[in-house]
Design a binder for these strands. Sequence first.
DNA 1: CTCTTATTGATAATGATTGTCATTAAATCA
DNA 2: TGATTTAATGACAATCATTATCAATAAGAG
Lengths: 156, 156
Amino acid sequence: MAKQAEGKASVSPGTQVTLAIGQRSTKQRAAVATALRDIDDFRSAQEIFEIVKSRGDNVSLTTVYRSLQAMASIGDIDVLLNSEGEALYRRCGQRSGHHHHLVCRKCGFTVEVEGPAVERWTHDVARKQGFTDINHTLDIFGVCSSCARKAKTARV
Amino acid sequence: MAKQAEGKASVSPGTQVTLAIGQRSTKQRAAVATALRDIDDFRSAQEIFEIVKSRGDNVSLTTVYRSLQAMASIGDIDVLLNSEGEALYRRCGQRSGHHHHLVCRKCGFTVEVEGPAVERWTHDVARKQGFTDINHTLDIFGVCSSCARKAKTARV
DNA sequence: CTCTTATTGATAATGATTGTCATTAAATCA
DNA sequence: TGATTTAATGACAATCATTATCAATAAGAG
């Protein structure tokens, strides 16, 4: 039942889905990619599941998880863990290489930032201690100006 | 049953437990603090629970969680999330102020590092974007020289 | 010693994520 | 184009870390 509305795919035609070798192109993955294209901030898998559903596409939660993981492993989307350890996903911005995020704790508004000096510093520190196979996490959280303004006005 | 071995507390007498106002000093919390004193690397709550038990102290997993949280909220111990989002705890090292961690993915060996330049950079970036109430995560993961050596020798 | 209440422990509940497995449908091939 | 292969899906169970519940216990104050 729920026959997915006679073939009228709500998936935007422009949405590009990158596939690894041996992978297949499905409408479910396209639906997730499209939903991701519409939002600017980091969202949990559950939230993305809701967004996909609200667009009229029918994709199971399991598949949303799998699609997000597949995309993330290719580097097609960004992942970060919030302070609760929950994974948040977002389509990659303009910066293709290694970058970090400045995320608003209130609304999720995100800015991608680069810091070559920081990259160098982390590698230097690690190498100096004899560490190899190095990676690092660096995310900045705060309250964006828009939310700060709202908070001052609202007085809840 | 299991009467906790006639009062002979296995908790090292030297172990200091910091208390917030209104808090009480219990043998359970002391046991967790003592276990923490014996290890140098970041461990999960479950692991610390095992360590406490192996020392002969009987503390429920729930209480271990609560103790760790209490200590962490006072800044008595360090917490970080590994890539799975699991919380890892460790007694504070010598550096009392704000610092970061260089952690071995294999054995948990940890080095505390400071980077005033990085602190400044994160704040500058965030302020420049209009963010306030800023904090950040920065942890470096890698394989320590000891584990790298072992891996080369072992060939499992 | 008594009283107040923070703390504990046993256990259930939560919530995100992963595993299972039969079914479906891309991509390939004849 | 129809048959074949197997990646992908979906419904649902299972994990696993962490938190909530709540009655019983025990610090610390009086």
